[in-house]
Structures are given as C-alpha cells and as structure tokens.
C-alpha cells in the first residue's frame, strides 16, 4: 500500500511539476537545451534547414501559443474573420513564424545569453522573461519573451528582439494587407509568401 501511494504521489507531483515550471526557468531550460543541440550538431551549424526546422518543431513550438499570437497580430480583424479564415490565418502565420525562427536560429554562433531575474507575484498570469544576448564586438541585444499562464503551462505569445516586438510588427503588416485586400487577401499573401519560401529553400 505504502509503495503504491508514494508512486501515485510521485506521478501526481511530476504532472504538477510539468505544468508549474516557472516561466523564467522554462525559458532558461529550453534555451540551454537548444544551444546544446546546436553546438553538438555539425549539420545544423552548416545550415541544414530540415534539421533546424525539426529542432524548432520539437523543442520550441510546444512552448508557443500560436492561436494567441495570431489573435494579437490580427487585432480588430480577428473578430471580423470567419472560423474558417481564423483557422487558415493561424496555420499560415505559424508556418511563417516557424520559418522565421528557424532562419534566425541557423545564424546562432557563439553568443552568450544572460537572463535577468524575474520578479513575479504568485498570482501573475502574464509576465515578461528578460534576457540579453552578448557577443564580442557587438552591443548586447535584449531578448524578451512575453508569456501567459495557460492550463498547459506557460506559453510564449510574443518575442521582442532589441525592443522590436515580433507581433507588433506583424500587426502593422497585417493591418495594411487587410486594408488593401481584405482578410482573404491577407491569407492569400501569407500562403504565397510561405510557398515562395519553400521553393526558395529547395
């Protein structure tokens, strides 16, 4: 009885742990993992885009909230979109972001990433994890992750590089596209952008 109980307890607590990892601990861990993999993998260093995409897909994607990112990027237009349009937008935007992230990750060399202490209250559901990328000969660049607490743990919904918010930038870009050619026009340009990038790669 006793071993069973403790086993049960161990199971429960590990589930709790997975969902309760503090946001800064989570980001630190993923960063360390990903950098480790890049450092050991000669193919990735040589720019093997399939392997990089794989790395992003497996290690990074699960910690991003794409639905939320798409909503924020679409701003008011999100409410105007039909469910089918919303689905397409989220899917295409995800593809775009994954590619962008993979492309950027492929440029990783020997930068050092320092994390700033995170001050959060226990009941916070929205925090910013701040880090700084250091490299010889360059000024450090801030790298901030906006994260929200969800039922499945903390998820990133925006990344700010050097003060430039990814989502804010797309917000402008998307708003312009919608103004010019409607939501369907935006979907169309996302699709063709993604298609062009795919053929560019091969």
């Amino acid at each position: 009885m006793k071993p069973l109980l403790s086993l049960l307890f161990a199971m429960v607590s590990s589930v709790v742990l997975a969902q309760d990892v503090a946001p800064d601990v989570l980001v630190k861990r993923i960063t360390a993992e990903v950098i480790d993999i890049i450092k050991q993998d000669k193919d990735i260093q040589a720019g093997n885009s399939k392997k990089i995409a794989d790395l992003v897909e497996k290690r990074i994607l699960p910690h991003f909230s794409f639905a939320r990112m798409t909503q924020i990027a679409l701003a008011v237009n999100w409410r105007r979109a039909t469910p089918e349009q919303k689905k397409q937008l989220t899917e295409e935007f995800k593809t775009l972001l994954v590619r962008t992230y993979s492309n950027a990750l492929a440029l990783y060399r020997d930068q050092r990433i320092d994390f700033k202490p995170l001050h959060m209250r226990p009941d916070d559901v929205d925090v910013t994890v701040k880090s700084e990328v250091r490299q010889r000969g360059k000024q450090p660049v801030t790298l901030h992750y906006d994260m929200e607490k969800t039922a499945h743990g903390w998820k990133v919904y925006d990344v700010k590089v050097g003060g430039v918010s990814l989502i804010t930038n797309y917000r402008e870009d998307f708003a312009g596209q919608v103004r010019e050619s409607g939501i369907d026009g935006l979907i169309k340009s996302l699709v063709s952008k993604n298609r062009a990038a795919r053929s560019d790669k091969s």
Binding site: V164, N169, E172, D173
Partner: peptide
Amino acid sequence: RVMEQAALDKYRFVRDAYLQRRRSLIYDGD
C-alpha cells in the same frame, strides 16, 4: 535574408521595426 522571408510588405515591416528599435534604443533597451 531572414527579414525578406518574414515580411509581407517589406516597406512597412522595416519602417515599424525601425521605429520600435529606435524607441527602445533611446531608453537603452528599457
């Protein structure tokens, strides 16, 4: 190259990134 593959409208994308970046720089990243 990363930027080219990321932007829908390069002009707007660059403009907004630039404006955000400068604002951040004036406050030294904060």
